[in-house]
């Protein structure tokens, strides 16, 4: 390594190595709890509470997973998660896409005001409205049902905002052409606007499903029956049932509950990035 190659690394290369190292460190901080969860889920009970920290278990304890699946109806929880998240997502798309299209591509009196309300709605956390919604559902005798888990979330100001921003960038002539071609406004929404907004829709779906899959607050408030418990709510039954907390199976359950999300994200990753960055439409 002499002569032709400089002894010291070029400046930009040093910078890149430093940057990558920092990013790796950041990734490690974010991933550490997950890695620990995975590690504990594979450890036998006597290995979990030892003074020395080791990530790889001495003996892989698959029985934690068996316990997790058999002691609580984990399959049921996962199915509930799919039903609730799927229901919420379908209704959200059904309501937010037409609304966003109207706000972006149609002119009507009060449009700016309405969009202002949507923006203001973004600032209100769900917890503020949780109590009125709870009381409303109670009066309608809808508590402790799938309806109670889905209904409060069928409209999404975030979804309206995201889709509106996307539609506002589409050329108006496209929608005029569709009108000339005989499409009704509803047909324009479903046949033209939504297919074009596919990246935005994917991004929104990831946000929505993640938020509602992981939500513990509302299922805890609105439901009591184990039959309709969503995954995070279900995991709590590990703690309730046993006298002491059985950490191994609990972590195994948590791993199983997190896995679908990770898989979903990995599948949608590319489209998701495009939707968030919203380089969006080409050709």
């Amino acid at each position: 390594m002499s002569g032709r190659f400089p002894r010291r690394l070029p400046r930009h290369l040093t910078g890149r190595i430093l940057g990558t190292a920092l990013l790796l460190l950041g990734a490690l901080v974010v991933l550490a709890p997950f890695l620990w969860m995975l590690s504990v889920s594979l450890k036998p009970a006597d290995e979990i509470f030892t003074s020395d920290v080791h990530l790889i278990p001495n003996r892989i304890a698959w029985e934690n997973y068996v316990t997790a699946v058999t002691t609580v109806p984990l399959g049921r929880f996962l199915l509930n998660g799919v039903i609730v998240c799927g229901g919420i997502l379908v209704f959200q798309i059904l309501f937010t896409v037409p609304c966003a299209y109207a706000l972006a591509q149609r002119s009507f009196p009060g449009r700016s005001l309405l969009f202002g309300c949507v923006l203001a709605g973004l600032l209100v956390p769900f917890h503020v409205t949780a109590i009125p919604i709870f009381i409303g559902l109670a009066k309608l005798r809808l508590l402790d049902s799938y309806t109670a888990l889905i209904l409060p979330f069928i409209g999404s100001v975030f979804g309206i905002f995201l889709f509106r921003q996307f539609f506002a960038r589409l050329p108006t002539a496209l929608f005029d052409a569709a009108r000339v071609d005989g499409l009704s406004e509803a047909a324009i929404v479903w046949r033209i606007a939504l297919p074009l907004a596919w990246p935005a829709a994917t991004a929104f779906a990831v946000f929505s499903v993640t938020a509602h899959w992981n939500d513990l607050f509302w299922p805890l408030v609105a439901t009591t029956s184990p039959e309709i418990a969503t995954p995070p709510r279900g995991i709590l039954y590990f703690r309730d049932e046993e006298a002491g907390t059985d950490l191994g199976p609990l972590m195994a359950g948590a791993t199983l509950v997190t896995a679908p999300l990770v898989i979903l994200f990995l599948l949608a990753q590319r489209t998701f990035m495009r939707g968030v960055a919203s380089g969006g439409l080409r050709g």
């Binding site: 050329p171 002539a173 496209l174 005029d176 052409a177 569709a178 033209i192 074009l196 596919w198 050709g283």
Partner: peptide, 9 residues
């Protein structure tokens, strides 16, 4: 239309 307004999808 001036921009042709073809449906990209």
């Amino acid at each position: 239309f001036q921009s042709y307004a073809l449906y990209p999808h």
